[in-house]
Design a protein around this nucleic acid. Structure first.
Length: 697
DNA sequence: CTAGGGTTAG
């Protein structure tokens, strides 16, 4: 039965689609099937095909089909299809509902075909508010401000209510033709119809007053907005700028408040030049604009300029001090931050919760537990301990300084006010110090009190990676997907890391490929993952992709590719990468890179000579090569200081090469004696050499 | 009226 019914349906669809006089045109079944076909075409982006099927079927379709198709026509600017649609609708539906005709007007408007829209509007047997709204919006969007405003007046005369969208359109048109008088009337209507608190309309009003040159009205309007959004800010800033450019005497310089607002807005948008321009206008310097400007410099990392300006301030508040300190901490200038705190203590008695938070961040970063404890005491004595921000900063400080006991105690002491940041901070402390299992226990407790955030999961995934808890890691991943958590670039990195550490490199790759944006850190995690899973070739490939995408590798990237070279025994490639570090990317090779090179050459020696074969050192060495085996002369190039020597020693001990070790150490002494005194301090090393020599004799 | 602060991944 099913198969037969299917073929009958197929015939029906075929005939209905090709002939206007199809069989049983009023059959609900055939309309339903046709609808499905039409919607399928729409879904595949074939709008013209969908409309032609509809057009050749002499049956009325459900309203929702027309509504849907009109929407698509509007967004695709498909005027031909829109006209066909309207004609089909009015032909086969005796009394088409007003709302569908309104949709048609909207579509014509979006297709910039105002004549079609107006024709339909005029011919409609009945019109509702939506028809007027659609027509007015169509005029307004197409730059026909006069027509839009004319129709709006008529609409009000007929006692119809304009919608939010219409008001926005009308206000836009008022701005286009600088209709201040009408704008004020519209303002009245906005209030009358209860649109108070509508950010979009209120911002539009700010805009239109600004355009009409009524900056004081714009300002009053703006101040009345309860929670201004980006658009509101953009509008007021743009209007003030225009006003300021056109007529300097009237604005900006007179209003200190505005100049401060502008400076801080520009600072937040990263436009330092504009901020400066406002600040250096005559009469705009005051305590607050100074602070804003210092903050603008500090936010963009220009700490020297920030400090110069800060030093020339005639007076300062605690906020001025704080913005300066925040700049130092934001850009990790801990020494300067510490000096600044000391200076601050000398110069002012003003310290508030923000200052304490910043100082605690500094203590956590240096790290300085003792100073942190002093801050704790200060906070206690001055009544800041019940401030959540200070409390969390304290918790973070104890955690980062490695004092988990105090972190835990403080966490319980602040139980009456703690939030999810507190939980995350505690969790992080445990995970960071390798206490991954304990971190998991804390997580389960956390669930009883608060909802986990993506920070929680980031931390947990790292903990899973540490203890190779693949099953739990997968559960967290699945939980995040199921509950719609954003798998952002950081979480992707944590997942890649967790999966590759758990030897689940295929999953790691999947996560990596799915990430919609990639930065150097994510690439690093993936490259490192490949290196650790014996996929050196893939790691090298990723490095090349990264270069192609214009992402600049950092020192971790090079560590990762060098590791790949080690795992694949690709000495020459490793050497090339090492040279890229300084030649192409202007980075300073770090200790770890030297270590990797030593390891790479060490491996080659083992490969070339077998584990237990080595040449006798020269009896009377004249140069470095005489001193050393092939490996050591090459590896020695990468010997930079005591740490690399220690690393070499470790490597040689690992391969149980006592004689080589002695020879190598001699080589180091030789090199050191010739060039610089970097060996000087390590008495232990010398003692070791002497001991070894004695044992040889 | 207008200015400042936090937790996450190699």
């Amino acid at each position: 039965m099913g198969a037969k019914a299917g073929s009958v349906l197929g015939n029906l669809i075929g005939s209905a689609a090709t002939s206007v006089t199809g069989q049983r045109p009023d059959s609900p079944l055939s309309t339903k099937a046709l609808t499905t076909t039409i919607l399928n075409h729409v879904r595949l982006g074939r709008l013209a095909k969908a409309v032609s099927i509809l057009f050749s079927s002499a049956v009325p379709f459900p309203f929702s089909v027309y509504a849907h198709l009109f929407r698509i026509c509007a967004s695709n600017k498909a005027i031909v299809e829109a006209r066909k649609l309207e004609s089909h609708l009015v032909t086969f539906t005796p009394n088409p509902p007003v709302f569908l005709l309104n949709r048609a007007i909207e579509s014509y408007g979006k297709c910039n075909c105002l004549e079609d829209a107006r024709e339909l509007f005029d011919e409609m047997p009945t019109r509702d508010g939506g028809s007027w709204n659609a027509m007015i919006t169509a005029y307004s969007r197409n730059g026909r401000a006069e027509d839009a405003l004319g129709l709006f007046s008529k609409m009000n005369a007929e006692g119809l209510f304009a919608s939010e969208v219409t008001f926005a359109s009308v206000l836009g048109s008022c701005g286009d033709v600088l209709e201040l008088w009408l704008s004020r009337q519209v303002h009245g209507l906005v209030l009358k119809y209860g649109f108070v608190g509508n950010v979009i309309l209120e911002s539009s009003l700010v805009d239109v007053y600004g355009k009409c040159g009524m900056m004081s009205d714009a300002r009053t309007m703006f101040d009345g907005i309860e929670s201004p959004n980006d658009v509101s800010w953009n509008v007021i800033v743009r209007r003030y700028l225009e006003a300021g450019d056109g007529n300097e005497a009237v604005n900006v310089e007179e209003d200190e408040v505005v100049s401060s607002t502008l400076i801080s807005m520009y600072a937040k948008c990263g436009d330092l030049e504009s901020a400066r321009r406002i600040f250096y206008l005559p009469c705009s310097k005051n305590l607050i604009s100074y602070t804003c400007m210092v903050s603008a410099y500090a936010l963009s990392g220009r700490m020297t300029e920030a400090r110069e300006l800060f030093d020339e301030m005639p007076e300062r508040t605690v906020i001025s001090w704080n913005v300066m300190l925040a700049g130092y901490t934001r850009f990790f200038e801990w020494d300067k931050a510490l000096d600044f705190v000391i200076l601050m203590r000398k110069r002012t008695k003003d310290i508030d919760h923000v200052t304490l938070g910043l100082i605690l961040n500094m203590c956590a970063a240096i790290p300085d537990l003792e100073l942190g404890k002093q801050v704790h005491g200060y906070a206690y004595r001055h009544g800041f301990y019940s401030n959540l921000f200070v409390g969390n900063a304290l918790l973070d400080m104890y955690g980062k300084c490695g004092n988990l006991i105090r972190a835990r105690i403080w966490f319980y002491e602040m139980s009456h006010l703690r939030d999810k940041v507190s939980w995350n901070a505690l969790l992080t402390s445990y995970a960071r110090h390798g206490l991954s299992e304990e971190a998991m226990v804390i997580f389960w407790k956390m669930l009883g009190e608060t909802k986990p955030s993506k920070f929680t999961f980031g931390t947990l995934l790292a903990a899973c990676a540490n203890i190779f808890a693949l099953a739990l890691g997968k559960q967290i991943h699945a939980f995040m997907i199921r509950n719609g958590y954003d798998i952002d670039i950081v979480i992707s990195g944590a997942l890649v890391d967790m999966y590759s550490k758990c030897r689940c490199i295929v999953y790691a790759m999947k996560v990596f490929n799915k990430a919609d944006s990639k930065d150097v850190i994510l690439f690093n995690s993936m490259i490192l993952g490949c290196s650790h899973n014996g996929m050196g070739g893939k790691a090298v490939e990723l490095f090349e992709t990264m270069e192609k995408e214009g992402i600049k590798p950092d020192h971790v990237t090079f560590q990762a590719v060098l590791r790949a070279c080690i795992s694949d025994g690709r000495v020459e490639l490793g050497r090339q990468y090492f040279e890229l570090i300084s030649n192409r990317y202007c980075l300073m090779p770090q200790l770890e890179h030297y270590d990797s090179m030593i390891e790479l050459y060490g491996q080659r020696f083992v490969n070339d000579h077998g584990p237990h074969q080595f040449r006798e050192p020269c009896k009377h060495p004249r140069n470095l090569n005489d001193w050393c085996f092939p490996f050591y002369s090459e590896a020695l190039e990468f010997v930079h200081n005591l740490d690399t020597i220690r690393f070499c020693r470790k490597q040689l001990l690992r391969y149980e090469r006592t004689e080589s070790l002695l020879c190598f150490l001699n080589g180091c002494v030789h090199k050191g004696a010739k060039s610089c005194c970097w060996l000087g301090a390590d008495e232990k090393l010398f003692l070791y050499i002497f001991k070894m020599q004695r044992r040889q004799e």
